[in-house]
């Protein structure tokens, strides 16, 4: 008798053998693996992946790196102003997105809006917004409202509206149903129930999502200037166009410092919320 049996007083039972896998399952597994590998090879072809070209390009890039030192400090104040503009685009755009997403997320969640006639069109709309990148929206808005950070704000706001609406509605769906039913039974309408009983329970998770998207948008805003939608991206594009490598190095450093600071701040805030 083993030690375990003695201690537990329970007879041990042998683990039953695994049922043999039918031939069909094994064959289809092989086939699936083959298809996956073939698909990846096809993608490599389509993406023009060529290690030789990379190897040939490396010395050029190394040359740029050498030229980039020391980074230039010329017109640093404009750079910092542009960096602040980038943060401002993200902050304003994300805030607009929160205001737009709050009412729609209630309409997009299954537990608060059981009727598919309302919920599905709302979801489709949010998914549409989410499907178009902020960069693409900004490109359109530059044409519509002209060059400058406002086009960037609009781009960020629209795309984030979609992502945020979807994420918010998912956190509403994760809520227990009971308190909602209890509020519904008092005979109060949707706006009252949502603002008074739903909001407190989802507030921690939606502020976490809001902060995360804000942080994400600050990173996304750094490139908006490439299409003329304001921020430090404009300086980035100028420097690349002029092959002004010392300037480019400074810009990249400013972006790195900015993004790191924002990440730290956001991580701290989110820790507080949890």
């Amino acid at each position: 008798m083993t030690d375990l049996q003695e201690r537990s007083g329970v007879g041990l039972v042998p683990v039953p053998p695994r049922p043999a896998q039918p031939l069909r399952t094994r064959v289809s597994r092989w086939l699936l693996s083959l298809i996956a590998v073939a698909g990846f090879v096809g993608c490599l072809r389509l993406a023009d992946v060529d290690p030789i070209e990379l190897a040939q390009g490396l010395p050029t890039m190394a040359g740029w790196l050498v030229q980039a030192f020391p980074p230039s400090t010329e017109a640093l104040d404009t750079l910092l102003l542009r960096a602040a503009e980038t943060v401002a685009i993200a902050v304003v755009g994300t805030t607009f997105a929160v205001i737009l997403a709050l009412p729609l997320c209630v309409l997009a969640a299954r537990n608060t809006t059981p009727s598919g006639w309302v919920r599905l069109p709302v979801r489709l709309f949010l998914n549409g917004l989410r499907g178009v990148d902020a960069f693409v929206f900004a490109l359109l808005f530059v044409a519509a409202v002209g060059l400058g950070p406002f086009a960037g704000v609009l781009g960020i706001a629209l795309h984030t509206w979609g992502s945020m609406g979807k994420l918010f509605s998912e956190s509403i769906e994760a809520l227990p149903n009971g308190p909602l039913e209890a509020a519904e039974l008092t005979g109060a309408g949707k706006v009252k129930t949502a603002s008074f009983t739903l909001l407190p329970d989802v507030l921690p998770s939606i502020s976490g999502i809001g902060l995360y998207l804000m942080e994400f948008n600050i990173r996304a805003s750094t490139v908006l200037g490439v299409v003329g939608a304001g921020g430090i991206g404009q300086e980035l594009k100028n420097a690349v166009d002029l092959l002004a490598f010392p300037r480019l190095a400074t810009i990249l450093l400013v972006i790195l410092v900015m993004v790191t600071l924002v990440d730290q701040l956001s991580a701290r805030l989110r820790k507080r919320l949890a």
Partner: peptide, 14 residues
């Protein structure tokens, strides 16, 4: 107060 929601104006609840 949740039990009172139906009788309180919406803006006050919000």
């Amino acid at each position: 107060l949740v039990g009172r929601l139906a009788d309180v104006p919406t803006w006050r609840v919000v």
